[in-house]
Amino acid sequence: MSLSLNQWTTRRWSVAEAVDGCVRHGLEAIGLWRQNVAEQGLAESVKLVRDAGLRVSSLCRGGFLTTSGKAFAEALEDNRRAIDEAAELEAACLVMVVGGLPGVQPGEPLTAGASRDLAGARERVAEALAELAPYAGERGVKLALEPLHPIYCPDRAVLSTLGQALDLALAHPEEQVGVVVDTFHVWWDPRVFDDITRAGRRIASYQVCDYLHPLPEDVLLGRGMMGDGVIDFKPITRAVLDAGYTGDVEVEIFNADIWAADPDEVVATMKARYEDVVLSRP
């Protein structure tokens, strides 16, 4: 495994700046976000990455598939565009954040029209995958289902455990649908080691950051630099390796203080913590 910078960790950097930063710090891979790629331009982003000799460890994100009717059709179309972008970038996977309860907006108070049909929302995800997985397979793209910590179940992801994500993935060919192991989201799960083993080569992405305690008021920003929170990384890393994962380890941090810091200092700290805190050596 080698280290990859998820672009959101150094959020102030454009695609061009993040690519330059990876080269400057000796990284071999980068995780990109669709909105940043759109700002840079898809063709220009592809050229920047290829000229720098970098791998794209992931493209984030597709998903938000729990709606119905016209909104569901629009979501499918947007995800097809995301798959096409991932194919152009030769990304190792397209990360799928599947969406929360219909009508519940991320970070917003509940409205009168909010749904409480959790089972139905999960059924929409399965229906969407049945449409999208073959399309992704035709284009050589692997969809990577990312379970999110249960605190995000209402508004961002009705998949809360690695086991739930894996159960959906197993309905499709391995080359079409896999799963993301993100330490922030799965560290608490008593079944996570069993499910990592069960996932095996279905693990499409291994993402790391720490879980801060206490969480900030905006829980979306509760991710910290590895070693600053409560996660014991090395057993998780060892389990992912033992499952057969050979891809990049992507550092993805949502944290206001880290975003405000000098990005070069953030990457330098990230590299040091990866060596000292994340890696599990025999």
Rank of each mutant, 00 (worst) to 15 (best):
R202A: 08
V46E: 01
A73Q: 15
D182T: 08
L32M: 09
A128V: 01
E138L: 11
E265M: 13
L215Y: 05
A75R: 01
P216C: 10
D155M: 04
R61A: 14
V230S: 05
I231N: 01
E175S: 13
A71H: 05
Q105L: 14
A75W: 02
L143V: 06
H172M: 07
M1Y: 10
L221S: 05
N255I: 07
C22K: 03
W187C: 05
A144Y: 03
C153M: 15
Q7I: 12
E217P: 00
A243N: 10
R122M: 13
A268S: 14
S2A: 10
I231S: 04
R11C: 09
G107V: 08
D248F: 13
L212T: 05
V177S: 01
D262G: 05
L220H: 02
A43I: 03
I203C: 05
R50V: 01
A169M: 03
A133I: 10
C22V: 07
V219S: 10
G31A: 07
A119F: 08
N6I: 06
V97G: 09
V277Y: 07
I253K: 01
R223K: 11
I83C: 01
A91T: 07
A119L: 11
E146R: 01
E28S: 15
T66E: 02
R281L: 14
A91I: 05
R198V: 06
P106A: 11
L162T: 01
G113L: 11
E88N: 04
H185Q: 09
R61P: 00
W187S: 09
I196K: 00
V267Y: 04
R81A: 14
A260Q: 09
D242Y: 02
G69K: 09
A130D: 13
F184K: 01
P154K: 12
G41V: 12
L220T: 11
L118P: 04
G103A: 10
A38F: 11
L101W: 10
L110N: 03
E174L: 15
S57P: 01
L48Y: 00
W188H: 14
P154D: 14
P173D: 14
R61I: 09
V95M: 11
C209N: 15
H172R: 05
D218F: 07
M225H: 10
G69L: 04
A87W: 03
W188G: 03
G103R: 04
